[in-house]
């Protein structure tokens, strides 16, 4: 029981880290450009497909990843120039409509190029296998690598945002973009950079799950909704909030799916418990979101002075 809990907690952390990678870009884009981007989940999907393709071409996952990340960055910047740049000063409804249209185009485009069949990416040789945890318990190396890579990225992001000049501009842009522009900073370039960074982070998340999930059209859709839950709980625009909320959502979802039915067995008979548990578990994170919002309508870490 304790072993199972430990495993599920690790899985939950790993899932949460992935959500954070996607959510960080989305919350930055919202916080700084005031843009609601429904197509962010598509960037995650594109990252996974690019990694799958480059891995198949080069025969090496790391080389594939090294090629996929800049490709995702370029893809994000191209989208920014073509579409998003013109949406910054529109109202949210128009942003929703345009990015919704973009989802249709990109999902269908992926379907056209790569087909509907899921693509699998082999786990690289060095990172396959598992390592012992406690007692007989083992955990796959690749999932540990995902956790480590995610934590390193979070650390790097923290450093970038709070310790560098670019980060200073980002924070200033988030609290008052027109003022930053008036001070002579090229806000357009800053926005493009943020968008590219967000696209690359989402693409990185997609790349990291490519070997453990199947790469398929529409894989970004569910992630998008979970990411929204994450940034709403964390407080829109807050990277710290996104980190905490992502781990919370990852843990509650993963642990809830396993332990919900087990806990319910104490009050219900086994078949009813597993039925109720399986029905309720997917709703847990939404219920959690409702509770958080009921208590704090702007999330756990609301942006100061903003919405």
């Amino acid at each position: 029981m304790t072993n199972l809990l430990l495993l599920q907690v690790l899985n939950g952390v790993q899932f949460g880290i992935l959500l954070f990678l996607v959510a960080a870009g989305l919350t930055l884009i919202f916080g700084i450009m005031d843009l609601i981007n429904l197509a962010h989940g598509v960037l995650y999907m594109v990252g996974a497909y690019l990694t799958a393709t480059f891995t198949a071409l080069t025969g090496d996952f790391f080389l594939g990843l090294a090629l996929a990340l800049p490709a995702a960055l370029v893809f994000g910047i191209v989208l920014e120039r073509l579409v998003f740049r013109q949406l910054y000063d529109r109202d949210h409804l128009e942003q929703v409509l345009a990015t919704f249209g973009l989802i249709l185009v990109l999902n269908e485009g992926v379907l056209m190029i790569w087909g509907a069949a899921p693509i699998s990416v082999p786990i690289p040789e060095i990172l396959s296998g598992s390592i012992p945890l406690v007692g007989p318990l083992r955990y796959p190396v690749f999932r540990i690598v995902i956790i480590a890579a995610g934590l390193l990225t979070a650390l790097g992001l923290w450093f970038l945002v709070s310790r560098t000049r670019v980060g200073m501009l980002l924070r200033a842009g988030a609290s008052n973009a027109p003022m930053v522009s008036a001070l002579g900073v090229d806000v357009k370039r800053l926005f493009m950079l943020v968008f590219g960074l967000g696209a690359m982070l989402a693409g990185f998340a997609g790349a990291m799950v490519a070997p453990i999930l199947s790469v398929e059209p529409g894989m970004g859709n569910n992630v998008l909704i979970l990411t929204f839950v994450v940034i709403v709980i964390g407080g829109i625009g807050s990277i710290r909030g996104a980190f905490v909320a992502a781990l919370l959502v990852g843990l509650v979802d993963t642990v809830g799916r396993t332990f919900g039915p087990i806990l319910l067995q104490k009050v219900l008979d086994p078949s009813a418990a597993s039925q109720t548990g399986r029905t309720l578990a997917p709703m847990l994170i939404y219920i959690m979101m409702a509770i958080v919002l009921f208590a704090r309508p702007s999330g756990l870490f609301p942006k100061k002075g903003g919405a």
């Binding site: 609601i36 949210h92 929204f228 709403v232 939404y286 919002l293 009921f294």
Partner: peptide
Amino acid sequence: ISLRTKGVYFIMITLAFGQM
């Protein structure tokens, strides 16, 4: 619950409740 929030929060929350 959702109408306690405004703007983009509301969009995302209704989206999430629909998914629920």
